[in-house]
């Protein structure tokens, strides 16, 4: 697994209904209109950056993991894919649709499609950018009806994992004490 530093979208598969609301919210958030009705009325094309997949009977959304040492950023020959301190995104104006990023993304999180960029039709790469330009943060997180998605900071995840581990340890200690006293 690649080292992560900035935030990323975390999915709780136990909560995901597979309703695809997040996909629609993602697509709408990246239109000029910024919402689904406006985008449809303006005849804008809709492209989602995430995808709900099914693994056996479990459904969950998948998207870019925001790798810190991102292979897509390293491979991109034009600098269209870039990384800031906290996220990776693509500047579609620079994209030449070579698909090298698609080939190296371990998570299958990038796709190339024809779209309108600066008034011109062209093929360009699409990926999750954590809705950095959206005041309310990631649209998928906001739209999920069951709160299966959250924007997590790796430190938070580590913190929660540490807490969980500590709890297990204390529980184990507790039960040992009980064992000791019952002997």
């Amino acid at each position: 697994m690649n080292k992560l530093e900035g935030p990323f979208i975390l999915v709780n598969p136990e909560r995901c209904l597979g309703c695809h609301t997040c996909e629609l919210a993602c697509a709408a958030a990246h239109t000029t209109a910024g919402n689904i009705i406006g985008a449809v009325l303006a005849g804008e094309k809709l492209y989602r950056r995430n995808r709900v997949v099914q693994v056996d009977s479990v459904k969950l959304s998948t998207q870019c993991r925001q790798c810190e040492d991102a292979p897509c950023v390293r491979v991109c020959p034009t600098g269209a894919l870039y990384r800031t301190e906290t996220y990776t995104a693509v500047d579609q104006r620079l994209c030449i649709a070579c698909r090298l990023c698609m080939m190296v993304c371990p998570f299958g999180a990038i796709h190339v499609a024809t779209t309108e960029v600066a008034g011109r039709e062209k093929a360009a790469a699409f990926k999750c950018d954590l809705c950095v330009d959206r005041p309310g943060g990631p649209a998928c997180v906001e739209a999920c009806p069951t709160k299966a998605l959250s924007l997590k900071y790796p430190t938070e995840v580590i913190h929660q994992a540490t807490q969980a581990a500590a709890r297990q340890f204390l529980d184990a200690l507790e039960s040992q004490k009980q064992l000791a006293s019952s002997q």
Binding site: V53, V58, C105, G108, I110
Partner: peptide
Amino acid sequence: EMFPEIEDLWALCPECRQQRAARQWI
């Protein structure tokens, strides 16, 4: 060779890579 992290999933298409990542996460 440039990206050893993708060696074992090299020929997988993006959809199957998503599937693989989702399974690993579960």
